[in-house]
């Protein structure tokens, strides 16, 4: 990026109208990928000068234990519903989960899910990291996921969406292929980096369960309806990508999982959705450039 410039120079302007059409495998019109955030939040993380980890003095019992619900209870509930309706996961992974709760990571691996990095912990922020420090978390991510799953990560969603001016250049330099941190488009788009070949994949932050429930205060049924409307429109337009970014501790709550399952059932039955993973979307897009 152009550090300090008003326009960070991440991409060229490319209007939605009159773009070359993209067709997904099997003639499908909308590539749908589900991104469960499998996270570990520390109960007593070190302070960061630019962001507080918890609203309350440690231990923030509700903040911490709400997120712990993912690993003890709701990951399994959410994952079963996804598998039942044929949705693989592309996991945004706090890679330290491989040490803390390898059982959760093993479950995702056994379901055939893809892993990309979401930093070491969701309580360690990248702001103010030196290039060397940021290289260290990228290298840690690559090595940790490889050892735990055998997979080589292809993508990045910055820990707690915290970035530095170097993040995109660095992940591209390490051979990563997609970023989930840019929200300027409903299609895969090239990203300008010093080296490498990086694209942005739509992560659909606006339909992230956290946004649905805590920014827009939706009821579970309203959120499920939102997913269906988002999907319907994107499938009508064609060549589009819809991401469903999730946190098990939100979507896997007992009052939310039923309506969510109905949304997945609807999308899977529609016939125009390519239910797939992030890396496959990037590959299919590249093959049409």
């Amino acid at each position: 990026m152009h550090e300090g410039a008003p326009d960070p120079g991440l991409y060229d302007f490319s209007p939605y109208r009159d773009r070359k059409s993209i067709v997904w495998p099997g003639g499908k019109s909308c590539a749908v990928w589900v991104a469960p955030n499998l996270e570990y939040y520390e109960v007593d993380p070190p302070a960061h000068p630019k962001r507080k980890a918890w609203a309350r003095p440690h231990p923030d019992v509700v903040g911490y234990s709400h997120r712990d619900h993912s690993n003890r209870v709701s990951h399994w509930r959410m994952a079963d519903v996804m598998s039942k309706h044929g949705f693989p996961g592309s996991v945004s992974l706090s890679v330290a989960l491989c040490q803390h709760h390898p059982e959760v990571v093993a479950d995702a691996k056994a379901r055939g899910w893809e892993f990309f990095s979401h930093g070491i912990y969701n309580t360690r922020y990248a702001y103010d990291m030196s290039e060397e420090q940021e290289r260290a978390i990228i290298e840690d991510s690559i090595a940790t996921v490889r050892e735990a799953t055998g997979q080589t990560i292809r993508g990045w969603l910055a820990p707690a969406l915290t970035h530095t001016p170097h993040t995109l250049d660095l992940i591209a330099a390490y051979g990563l292929e997609y970023t989930c941190d840019l929200y300027h488009d409903d299609q895969v788009q090239p990203v300008k980096t010093a080296t490498g070949k990086l694209v942005s994949i739509p992560y659909s932050l606006e339909v992230n369960d956290h946004y649905g429930f805590f920014i827009y205060n939706m009821s579970p049924r309203e959120y499920a309806d939102t997913l269906v409307r988002q999907y319907e429109r994107l499938a009508d337009e064609g060549g589009t990508v819809m991401c469903i970014p999730l946190h098990a501790y939100l979507i896997g709550q007992p009052h939310r999982i039923g309506p969510f399952e109905e949304a997945l059932r609807y999308i899977a039955a529609d016939g125009r959705a390519w239910l797939t993973k992030a890396g496959d979307i990037v590959d299919a897009w590249r093959a049409q450039q």
Partner: peptide, 11 residues
């Protein structure tokens, strides 16, 4: 500004 090196330690 860079972060204290201990910020990248995970005891």
């Amino acid at each position: 500004m860079t972060l204290d090196p201990t910020y990248l330690e995970y005891p």
